[in-house]
Design a protein around this nucleic acid. Structure first.
Lengths: 265, 265
DNA sequence: AACCGGGTTTCACATCATGGAACGCTCGCC
DNA sequence: GGCGAGCGTTCCATGATGTGAAACCCGGTT
């Protein structure tokens, strides 16, 4: 639950410890390719991980033959098999399939960007994002992360989680992203109390200048928060409060649809 | 390109060969958990893979500490890290982000199920699926596979691919799924010719009884097919031909939006 | 209290991954 | 057109490393 993943950002220089050395190396390779945006080359991997070229070569060969990597003329990419595997992750899968129809409804009603996110290692990870043509501005990506305290979904998740989860999130957050980002633990606690009162969280350009949103918590049958649902739009024309009821309604709908699934993460 | 993955269906009894033995075993474990629907237990893994318990234990430990597996009271599940990694697969990612807005448009216009799929190892793999509340019937899943010759998207992809890709797909197809499934290579070739003439493919309850669809090819800048886009609905009220123009329009839109991305697979 | 079926730990053994060295290749540069 | 910088690839003697039988712990069932 409180398992901090090694930061996937920046150079993955082998700081991951596995009891089985080979596996550690293999993941170092994957981590590097991931950090490089899904595409790299053998030499670059060797340089970045500090592993000798022949070793990387051997690992890459196995990864390719399984489908975790894909080789082209002069590049190596994450392979399709990883996508397929990733879609089988139960937590994500159940949530996504339950939430999607309601997210569609929200999109059709608002024509703004709709997000579904969960908490992982103190960060918000986006499970689904629905968006139209105009939304080049949103800095989010399905499968991407954001510091929890700086986002609407993050706040709505933390508000209904025990205090130590909040601590983890604060520590994992990193530097504020905008002038309005909540960077102090005290201010955050107060904000979370407000969220609990009102039932929704707002993001007033706290994660990205010019971007605002409303988020509502999604609870499971047992009454634990499992995800956050949000509508986001540009600060100018978009008034998040107007959609407060809509997100709440959608969130309730998702809860109703959720199978009996344990909290998980 | 023609790399047949070992069938992910059924018991994965270690028939995967890697030069580095440990990695082969590790993937055998993951494969089993995947085949079990994303959730299993240590004992079951050991039984299914034929690996001794201590070995599985060690592997699982490493997989957990990286985030590829997640442990709960009495189960092991595929972990969130796999989802994140899977979303970084470049081929999938570019396609998805380019296609999504157009898929939204299609959904809003039709309120039927919208699919985006690519060809992998002779199968159609679904990259995205948009669906409303009523569509319990569709047997597809994002990240899931279907035999190419039995689906609209599959036919539209095969129609613009060289003959050997068709051969691979036919061999990989398995038994017909419905009475109308195209199971002979000759009939398929003829169907593909029709597809090339008309520019779209239909699925008349060929993959699932009661389900029909229209599919259009998505080409990249270089003019190669990279994906298929489809609208599917129930055989009764849904007349696929009525949406022929709509899917085609959307597919063209996606092409225009696609970055300069090599064919890949 | 004996049993069973899960998960865990231990440890002597030899299998297996290791990585330095050396190779072929294709560029780009002088 | 020759030279070198970088890339991916192969080889193979060496010992570090993964191995798995055996034994153990624990909670539930008989």
């Amino acid at each position: 639950m409180t398992d901090q993943y090694p930061q996937a950002t920046g150079q993955t220089r082998f700081e991951y410890t596995a009891t089985t050395a080979v596996i550690g190396k293999m993941f170092a390779v994957l981590d590097h390719v991931a950090a490089a945006g899904g595409q790299s080359t053998l030499a670059r991997i060797a340089a970045a991980t500090g592993l000798p070229k022949p070793t990387v070569h051997r690992l890459v060969k196995d990864l390719k033959s399984w489908g975790a990597l894909e080789a082209g003329g002069d590049w190596l990419r994450l392979g399709p098999r990883l996508f397929e595997l990733g879609q089988l992750v139960p937590h994500t899968r159940n949530l996504r399939s339950a939430a999607l129809p309601f997210m569609q409804d929200l999109y059709e009603a608002t024509h703004e960007t709709i997000h579904l996110g969960v908490l992982t290692g103190g960060h918000v990870v986006y499970i689904e994002k629905i968006t139209g043509h105009h939304s080049g501005a949103t800095p989010t990506r399905v499968g991407g992360r954001m510091p929890a305290p700086y986002t609407g979904i993050g706040k709505v998740l933390l508000a209904y989680l025990p205090g130590d989860a909040v601590d983890v999130a604060v520590r994992a957050a990193g530097p504020p992203r905008t002038p309005t980002s909540i960077s102090s633990r005290d201010v955050l606690s107060q904000a979370l109390a407000t969220v609990r009162e009102r039932g929704v969280a707002f993001d007033q350009e706290e994660s990205q200048p010019g971007l605002v949103c409303v988020a509502a918590p999604v609870f499971d049958r047992a009454g634990a928060v499992v995800a956050g649902l949000s509508v986001a739009g540009p600060a100018g024309r978009f008034t998040p409060a107007r959609f407060e009821a809509a997100v709440l309604t959608a969130a309730h709908g998702v809860r109703r649809t959720l199978r009996a699934a344990p909290a998980g993460g």
